[in-house]
């Protein structure tokens, strides 16, 4: 649409088929690192010089979440260059920042676009956006909007007032589940290497190397490893509030132990005692590690806490994995 600062792209508030398809790909992880839009000013609805200015990140998933919650609403959206990273993570990396806002307000001539000097910034960006600094350096007043874009219309209708719920982060079942696919995607390459190495090691025996042993033992190794990965990367996020322990590496022990118990009591016909113990330790190590890795996806783990638990968790995981390796390699020579 034509404005006082030139032509501004107008965006829809309803997702297209392509938007939906790309959202799935971004959630799975394939296009996640390149899913960005051009920074600048966008219009939603029919904004005027008195309409609110909403600030967003240039990760398309963030931008889409915002615009799809603005049906029937008129506003300007100022998209910062956050290198295609979402609001909270970009603030953590100091790209959704005071500096970036001050620069963007100037570069995109927001002062000429609207009559007021207020911008609505997502609350989670407060990690790197100092309202008083923005005011000092640009003259614009930062109003911290709600945590979630879904509450934005209500927030504005209430005269830019947020209730406690709007200001609080949550981590519901749905919010946890949406994070699972990308965990698997990011893991896939390392997992493939581990599986290949594990299968190759499974062939080592008294007669140097046996292809038959490689397939038999290697096959079981693959099944147990995949089960352990599901324990750590799916079961842990799913049952997070109910798994015992505060530390994530401890939470991860339990589903890994279940897989381990299955090895100990369910694999009599195919595994020796050494191998059963090896696979039990292995599944516990994998599940515990992946659970610990999930700390990065939650909105309540503090870096000090994660560092604290990693010093303990990594030690246990390494000991379990080393024990598993020794037992697995020794087994063919013992029997």
């Amino acid at each position: 649409m034509a404005t006082s600062i030139g032509s501004v792209p107008k965006v829809f508030t309803i997702p297209s088929v392509r938007d939906r398809y790309e959202t799935v790909l971004a959630r799975v992880g394939t296009i996640r690192n390149t899913y960005a839009i051009a920074p600048g000013i966008y219009a939603v609805g029919s904004p005027t010089s008195t309409s609110p200015v909403l600030v967003s990140a240039n990760y398309k998933l963030s931008f889409d979440t915002l615009r799809f919650h603005l049906a029937g609403f008129s506003a300007w959206i100022l998209v910062l260059d956050t290198r295609g990273i979402n609001v909270w993570c970009a603030a953590g990396k100091q790209t959704f920042s005071t500096q970036e806002i001050v620069m963007s307000l100037e570069r995109y001539r927001v002062e000429q676009l609207v009559d007021h000097q207020q911008i609505i910034v997502p609350q989670l960006a407060a990690v790197a956006v100092s309202a008083h600094e923005v005011k000092k350096r640009s003259g614009f007043t930062v109003i911290f909007g709600p945590v979630r874009a879904s509450a934005l219309q209500e927030f504005v209708a209430n005269g830019n007032q947020a209730d406690e719920a709007m200001r609080t982060v949550t981590f519901s079942m749905a919010e946890r589940m949406v994070l699972v696919p990308v965990e698997f995607y990011l893991l896939s390459r390392q997992l493939l290497v581990i599986l290949l190495v594990g299968v190759a090691l499974s062939g080592i025996g008294p007669d140097a190397f046996s292809a038959a042993a490689m397939f038999d033992r290697g096959g079981i190794f693959v099944i147990i490893t995949v089960a352990a990965v599901f324990s750590g990367a799916l079961v842990v996020p799913l049952f997070l509030p109910w798994l015992p322990g505060r530390q994530f590496w401890i939470k991860g022990l339990f589903p890994g132990l279940l897989v381990g118990l299955w090895c100990l009591w369910g694999c009599d016909t195919v595994l020796s005692d050494f191998e059963k113990a090896a696979m039990a330790l292995w599944s516990v190590a994998i599940s515990s590690y992946l659970a610990m890795n999930f700390t990065g996806s939650t909105p309540f783990t503090s870096p000090s806490g994660v560092e604290y638990e990693m010093k303990r968790g990594l030690l246990v995981q390494c000991l379990c994995a080393a024990g598993a390796l020794v037992l697995w390699l020794l087994s063919p020579f013992v029997i």
Binding site: C89, H132, V306, M310
Partner: peptide
């Protein structure tokens, strides 16, 4: 980041295992 008098302090960061490794 939003305290004008530096009265509130914290050692901020990303609570993420991969990052800490």
């Amino acid at each position: 980041a939003n305290c004008p008098t530096e009265a509130i302090t914290v050692d901020p960061g990303v609570g993420c295992a991969a990052y800490i490794i």
